[in-house]
Amino acid sequence: MRDSKGQPFMPEHDPDPATPSGYAGKPCPPVLMILFNRPHLAEQVFERVRQARPARLYLAVDGARDSRPTDAELTARCRELATKVDWPCELKTRFSEVNQGCGRGPSNAITWFFSQEEAGIILEDDCLPEPSFFPFCAEMLASYADDARVMHINGNNFAPAGARAIYGGDSFGFGRYAQAWGWASWARAWQHFDYDVKGVHDEPASTFATAGVEKVRHEAHRDRVVSTIKHHHHDVWDYQWQFAVMKQRGLCISTAVNQISNLGFGDDATHTTDSSSFVARARTAALSFPLVYPAKVEESPAINRLYADHMLGEVGRYRKKAFKRWLRNLFGIKKAAK
């Protein structure tokens, strides 16, 4: 793996075997933290990053909203994390003076990050990583650096029961769904990101086709992406990234054990408001090294189904919708406007 100047990536400190960065002798890759107004969560994520001791850390904090008087103090507290870097580290900050929102803000920060790094880890303020996530990403980013088929490394895997049956004893596998709750990628992949997703409305459902997942859910995924981007364009960036990965027929690495716990479910969240959700604060587990690699770099139908079940829902509901749509088309019945 090489840095933004084309030089081999090497740590600026000797890995300490007692810290996460010492797993299997793998230095922590560059890390981007994307923050806003939840310092109580950001501090927990920062502590995990501090333990991993990346040689380069990027802190992006969005600006306060004029309509929320408390934002000024909260964003200031997030900025103060820059003063708590107490290990050998090149620190770069991007503190916005205006509020960009939870669409443009994160996507601009990621573009800033990948304009200076060839590869790295991205953590938002509510995505608490398992310590072994850092060396796992280090190995994956190095192992698949030159494989354009692989575009994304998932940290969250929905903590499935019976993971051995899904992953077959491997440490990770490949699917087609990009999850943004703690992830890693390469600048070569992010170059395909388009915030405005030109042409998405004309994209066929076949773009969203994945092995092992029913056609009705391919159509549902397309409809969800198009609808979300149409109605919530200012609030999202991960849907655009999912589309970019699907459009390129990219593969996403998924770990056999959950590596990210989302702390952000609750009333102060923008999207993850249901604190009773089974994925809220999901348990994590450490990966064992050396990693067991899959025999082939190809998408797994079982991993695709796992992600589709949680991201898109059960197939039955979409079959009912498809049947109702077929009946309306057959009899020329227009769907009532809401």
Rank of each mutant, 00 (worst) to 15 (best):
V45A: 00
V45E: 00
F46Y: 05
E47N: 13
E47C: 11
V49P: 06
V49H: 04
V49R: 03
R50Y: 03
Q51I: 03
A52R: 07
R53T: 02
R53P: 08
P54H: 07
A55M: 03
A55N: 09
R56M: 11
R56W: 08
L57I: 00
Y58V: 11
Y58K: 12
A60V: 04
V61I: 11
D62Q: 01
G63Y: 06
G63N: 06
A64K: 14
A64M: 13
A64P: 15
A64S: 14
S67P: 00
S67L: 02
S67W: 05
P69S: 02
T70F: 15
T70N: 15
D71W: 00
A72C: 10
E73P: 05
E73N: 11
L74Y: 05
T75H: 11
T75E: 10
A76E: 14
C78H: 02
R79Q: 14
R79T: 08
L81A: 05
A82V: 06
A82R: 14
T83N: 15
K84A: 11
K84C: 07
V85E: 02
V85F: 02
D86F: 03
D86V: 08
D86Q: 11
W87T: 00
W87E: 02
P88T: 01
E90D: 13
K92D: 13
F95K: 12
F95S: 07
V98D: 12
N99T: 07
N99M: 05
Q100F: 15
Q100M: 15
Q100H: 15
C102G: 14
C102P: 15
G103K: 07
G103C: 06
R104D: 14
G105L: 03
P106H: 06
S107C: 04
N108D: 15
A109V: 01
T111S: 13
T111G: 12
T111Y: 10
T111F: 06
W112L: 04
W112E: 10
W112M: 05
S115D: 15
Q116G: 07
Q116H: 11
E118W: 04
E118L: 10
A119L: 02
A119C: 05
G120L: 09
G120A: 04
G120C: 08
I122S: 09
I122V: 14
I122Q: 05
L123W: 01
E124K: 08
E124S: 08
D125Y: 10
P129Q: 00
P129H: 07
E130P: 08
E130T: 05
S132T: 12
F134H: 09
P135F: 04
P135I: 01
P135C: 07
F136C: 06
F136P: 10
C137K: 06
C137R: 09
C137Y: 04
A138Y: 00
A138V: 00
M140S: 10
L141S: 01
L141D: 04
